[in-house]
Amino acid sequence: MMSSPLSRLRLADLLPVATIGLRTRPGRAALSVLGVAIGIAAMVAVLGVTRSSQAEVLARLDRLGTNLLTVASAEPHGGDETRLPDSAGASVARTEGVLAASATAQLNDLAVYRSDLIPTAHRGGLDVRATDPALLATLDADLLHGVFLDESTANYPVVVLGHQAATVLGIATLTGDDRIWLGGRWFVVVGLLDRVELAPEIDRAALVGFGVAASDLGWTGHPSRVYVRTDTTRTAEVAGMLPRSANPQAPSRVTVSRPSDVLSARLAVADATTSLFLGLGAVALLVGGIGIANVMVISVLERRGEVGLRRALGAARRHVAAQFVVESVLLGAVGGGTGVLLGAAVTVALAQNRGWQPIIPPVAAGLGLAAALLVGTVAGLYPALRAARMAPTEALRTA
Rank of each mutant, 00 (worst) to 15 (best):
D261I: 01
P243W: 12
D261Q: 10
P259M: 01
R234Q: 14
D127A: 14
W181A: 04
I360P: 05
L396K: 10
A141W: 07
V269L: 15
V378H: 02
E75S: 12
L84H: 12
Q323A: 01
R354G: 05
P383R: 00
L330H: 01
S275C: 05
W186K: 01
S4I: 14
V287L: 14
T50R: 10
L367H: 07
A166S: 12
T50N: 11
V189F: 05
R318W: 12
R123F: 06
S87R: 15
R114C: 04
V256M: 06
L286H: 09
T175S: 15
L193V: 13
G65N: 11
A55C: 04
R63K: 07
L285Y: 03
F148Y: 14
A399C: 07
A42F: 11
V188I: 14
V44S: 05
V238G: 06
R129W: 00
A321M: 13
L11V: 00
R179L: 09
G209W: 06
G332T: 02
E197D: 05
P251L: 06
V378A: 03
F324R: 02
E81V: 11
I292D: 00
L341W: 00
G332K: 04
S264K: 15
Q106N: 13
L207I: 12
V378C: 01
L135D: 02
S53C: 09
L278R: 11
A333R: 01
A284C: 09
R317Y: 11
A105W: 07
P251A: 11
V283R: 08
P358T: 14
A206Q: 07
P5W: 09
A105I: 08
G314A: 04
P243A: 09
R28L: 07
R310H: 03
V128A: 08
V300R: 01
R114I: 09
L6K: 14
L110G: 11
A236S: 04
T273P: 13
P133I: 08
E96I: 13
A12E: 01
L136C: 09
V159K: 06
V36I: 10
A349I: 15
V320K: 03
A391S: 11
G162S: 08
A250E: 14
A399T: 05
V196N: 07
T70C: 06
L313F: 10
L367W: 09
I118W: 12
L135V: 06
T235R: 00
V71M: 06
V326N: 03
A90G: 12
A141Y: 06
A371K: 00
D142W: 12
A371S: 03
L263K: 11
S224P: 08
A399Q: 05
R8I: 03
D194I: 08
I20E: 08
L144N: 13
G337N: 05
T230F: 07
R244G: 09
